[in-house]
Write a protein that binds this DNA or RNA. Sequence first.
RNA 1: UGGCCCGUAGUUCAAUUGGCAGAACGCCUGGUUUUGAUCCAGGAGGUUGCAGGUUCAAGUCCUGCCGGGCCAGCCA
Length: 563
Amino acid sequence: MDVTNEPSGKKSNFIQDLIDEDLKSSRFNTHVQTRFPPEPNGFLHAGHAKAICLNFGIARGYSGLFNLRFDDTNPVTENSEYVFSIRKDLEWLLGEELESDPLYTSDYFEQLYLWAELLIKDGKAYVDDQGAETISIQRGSFQEVGVDSPFRNRTPEENLLIFREMRSGAFAEGHCVLRAKIAMDHVNMNMRDPVMYRIRNERHFRTGDTWCIYPTYDWAHGQSDALEGVTHSLCTLEFDSHRELYDWFLDQLDIPSERRPYQTEFARLNFTHTVLSKRVLKRLVDDSVVEGWDDPRMPTLSGFRKRGYPASAIRSFCDHIGAAKTNGTHEIELLESFVRSELNQNADRKLAVIRPLKLTITNWPPEHIEMLTAMNNPEDPSAGSREIPFCGSLYIEHNDFMENPEPKYYRLSPGREVRLRYGYYITCNKVLKDEAGNPIELLCTYDPETSGGKSPDGRKVKATIHWVSANHAIEGKVALYERLFAVEHPGSESGDPLDDINQSSKTLLTNAMFEPSIAEATYGDVIQFERLGFFNLDQNDPILFHRTVGLRDEWANIVKRRK
RNA sequence: UGGCCCGUAGUUCAAUUGGCAGAACGCCUGGUUUUGAUCCAGGAGGUUGCAGGUUCAAGUCCUGCCGGGCCAGCCA
């Protein structure tokens, strides 16, 4: 995929500094090329988003090339449904479609096999007939050097013969493996004769039954990079100790220096109150803690999409955090602030009441309905306006009324005057209650002089609250989401992240009241319900809205500080 | 117990490569406001992990400690 574009004026990070040096020293006499190499065995999450934006952004910044490569070397866990969803999520994130089809490591199986034979002929690889457990024991430890396999000194001719038998399916799974012949006393464990091929009598989703031996990550990755022309192979920190092996393999093969890729590691992304491990995410789904991989509480790209996070906000976030080698954890609030600022600019506003409290205007002319004009987006006048019906029978938000107001609470309470957004000033005169003493209806009077929310005498009201006409409201549902995990670093104290689940991470409110124009809402457009937050219409349920993120809430801060 | 990587504000990152330690988010204060939002202005917050050394000058170079992360899959 060609991503020629102007370099972004972003602050640099150590990877860009490194590429700048490479360019200066002409280490590569071609373009810069990066890749994103997911294994098709799971769904993309925020961690992948960082890698995608980094790789794509660098290619774009240097007018280079970027490609998606499915690292499909393990047929037991991988399948084409993941290929489909990964591509979909990636294109959604990037906001554009891939210009060329994705690449696959499995396309290089034959070349990889040929190279493996080359190494065998050079005496640099051998077939080991031992089991996994034996090989593991022989590998030694950090303190002890490993011991040579009894099969280590087979002749190249013998190795070649057996390796070809391996390929032809002569052996059972686990009977033998092909190992690189490096050094069993190497200080780097990855260099103690690593496995290059293992037998798997498993159908591969792309190559079918063509192969029964499959290359390991270490053997496949660098060579695939080289075959594609990747110059900068970016991966996460835990591959640091694999770099030596990555280089060793490339050194053994006749890779022209200008096609020689180099691996650079950066820190993986972490969020507070979140977990970004495929394994734990899978448990959340399997244990029904959430309602699937695309649950709006999940940090997956499909979860973000369902929740209403704009892809552009995720991209901005990734640009902002850049890349470094320091392991750290980002506050989830930072991501949310990017989501808010994006949505604040672009989201249309509507009125909705999610915890309705009946309010009757006692001096409103019976049967009278007035159409009020409301701005669609105060941040963007070109978004226009709409009409909202107003009458004497309304719903307001339950927590916009307090019978005995706390200090600094300046919304509605008995005897107090507030403004109804786009409407009139009203004063609360009487509170009707149920047997338990809970308010069930407010009786108020309005000031006809304050049409449009302006008072001719210039008197001020402290609060403006939202409302919906009870006679015109569309009833629906709203799903509120809190952090999935109750603690900043799930599992750090308890040992198991699932022990730190926030039990009330989802609240479904089923008698929300929306202004009539909500009927025109279309999937994909996140809207702001004024004073409540941003909400995303569900793809299938036309009256269900997922709260993307709340507005910053000063009153909530005041309440919190009091405790 | 070995090797490698990393320590700068609450958090994540900068610091023109040895020259007055900054930004964003968060927090606090004030202003504007028909969203307690947005927007604007300001503020608090630092012994640059610690201790030495080189230098007119060290976050940056050197040495030694301390702390965190990673590595002993036929996962990636």
